[in-house]
């Protein structure tokens, strides 16, 4: 019974989520872009000339109907991968994205092995 209610709740929630997040949010994009002049700062946090210009351009692109991903691709094309804080998944960056989960998997297997040893006895 309880389980059923929980499942219904989740289905309800899934609905509300699908309805949202169609228009890209500029504030999120700004946070994911690295300011090139200030090196360690995001565009959202920076008030440099470059960051201000970039903010205008991103807003324009959103108005043109570009998706978040398209905007990142455009900027990577112009400035290189350095400008995005989330490295795109490609040959060079594949290890970065895969290794953590690989480690998680291995860790899980080790624990399973330790626990299983006991149950077999």
């Amino acid at each position: 019974m309880k389980l059923k209610i929980i499942i219904i709740f989740f289905l309800l929630q899934l609905n509300t989520i699908n309805a949202k997040v169609l228009v890209a949010d500029p504030n999120i994009i700004f946070k994911n872009l690295r300011c090139l002049i200030c090196q360690g700062q995001s565009v959202a946090d920076s008030n440099s000339e470059f960051a201000q210009t970039l903010k205008l351009v991103v807003k324009d692109k959103i108005r043109e109907g570009k998706s978040e991903k398209e905007i990142y691709e455009f900027l990577i094309d112009k400035y290189g991968e350095w400008i995005v804080y989330k490295p795109p998944f490609n040959k060079v960056n594949s290890l970065l994205w895969i290794l953590p989960y690989f480690a998680l998997l291995i860790g899980g297997l080790i624990i399973m092995a330790l626990v299983k040893k006991r149950s077999n006895r």
Partner: peptide, 13 residues
């Protein structure tokens, strides 16, 4: 004027 064109050229300063 707005600096927007410079982004198309990958200019940052």
């Amino acid at each position: 004027n707005s600096g927007k064109q410079s982004i198309n050229f990958g200019v940052y300063g």
